[in-house]
Design a binder for these strands. Sequence first.
DNA 1: GCGGAAGTGGAACTGGGCTTCCGGATAAAG
DNA 2: CTTTATCCGGAAGCCCAGTTCCACTTCCGC
Lengths: 225, 225
Amino acid sequence: MLPVKRGFVESPEPEPERQLRADARRNRERVLAAAEQVFAESGLKGQIEEVARRAGVGVGTVCRNFPTKQALVEAVLTSMYESLVNQALVALEHPDPGAAFEQFFVALPEFQARHRALGEQMANELELPSSAQPLREQLTAALTELVTRAQASGAIRADIGPADVSMLFAGIAHATAIAGELQPVLRERYVRIVLDGMRPRDASTLPGRPLDFAQLRRMKQRRKP
Amino acid sequence: MLPVKRGFVESPEPEPERQLRADARRNRERVLAAAEQVFAESGLKGQIEEVARRAGVGVGTVCRNFPTKQALVEAVLTSMYESLVNQALVALEHPDPGAAFEQFFVALPEFQARHRALGEQMANELELPSSAQPLREQLTAALTELVTRAQASGAIRADIGPADVSMLFAGIAHATAIAGELQPVLRERYVRIVLDGMRPRDASTLPGRPLDFAQLRRMKQRRKP
DNA sequence: GCGGAAGTGGAACTGGGCTTCCGGATAAAG
DNA sequence: CTTTATCCGGAAGCCCAGTTCCACTTCCGC
């Protein structure tokens, strides 16, 4: 790998950006936008042909820009993660740790529900596009920070790990994904319930230990073979 | 076709049970058992060929007993629902309504997690086999009863509907489905948290209204077309 | 045992979705 | 306006499940 950066002897890299013809660039954008839509509403089972249709191009065009479906999915997911990381950073700016946590705890399930493909990816930890890896790490870091601060301020109980929170996020998002127009209300209801459940309670300890992202990752990887 | 059987004027019934040959009956059982396994661990995407392999028969045999994959799935799901209804009825016998509710609230996510296909079915409300319809209704009735009683006894807050509970069940099951050996502990953790969140709290009301199964069904049906 | 109906395995077929391919269209350079 | 590298559409090919089919085997009543 060795990501050598500037000047010097160029490695035979796959030339990052060949200049695209103007119309080609435009089409590429349209495809991305269409894909975002389709995967948002149909999840990862959204079809290439549908993407092409909505973008107003032929399937060939889709497949030239993104040689494989996986590539297309990755492109979309990467931009999702970007947006998500931003939301986390915004929440972190909130002065009150409890409110910061709550803000993000409301925003994430909403986001996951709005973008089904993202929800599926985060839940199942399907191969992560390498391009999203650093984003993913930023996200877990931010989430960990949110949790830690909230705990320090006494907003949520101490025996909950950051990955526990992530799991509960995913659960809510998944459960409410099927709801139609009621979705936002239901999500709010369940977020409320779970938040209440996470508040400190004296004289009670959760079974097991707080779950962190390292464990979570290990768990998921063990499921592959 | 016209499988005229014995003398008389046969009514055009789909003759419920043609006597199966001994070996055929045995094979049918094996197929069902294998299917249960496969769908339990792989969900609805489990493959016919895998079922055949585990049952030690050819795909032809599977497809003769269950002319379509859907039919096979339905057979398995029906038996799942049976078992589930039983668990609900057992819980209902518990004298303490709060404990009864809790008992089932622990058992259902575990069951859903152990049988991925069931979880997927219950979450997505895919076409329900007509054979399971009455079971399904028994289940919702029992669950409604459990919730109502628990509320009457003050074990859980009043502004939660039976279908809310069902959604939260499904969320936990889904979230923990990916965990490996940690699954049981995690499930217990999250059940605990959600249960805590459902306890009565003065001076707070959930947004929206309690969700009942009629609404839930309507919601899901609206997603089809 | 024997005959034939019932059952079996797995190869062949089918359909749906992803990917490839190429003749024709189009933007950019001269 | 001509040229030409680039890009486009969508038909054709491929692959992976599910389903069908039939020559062969197995069970069971005689």
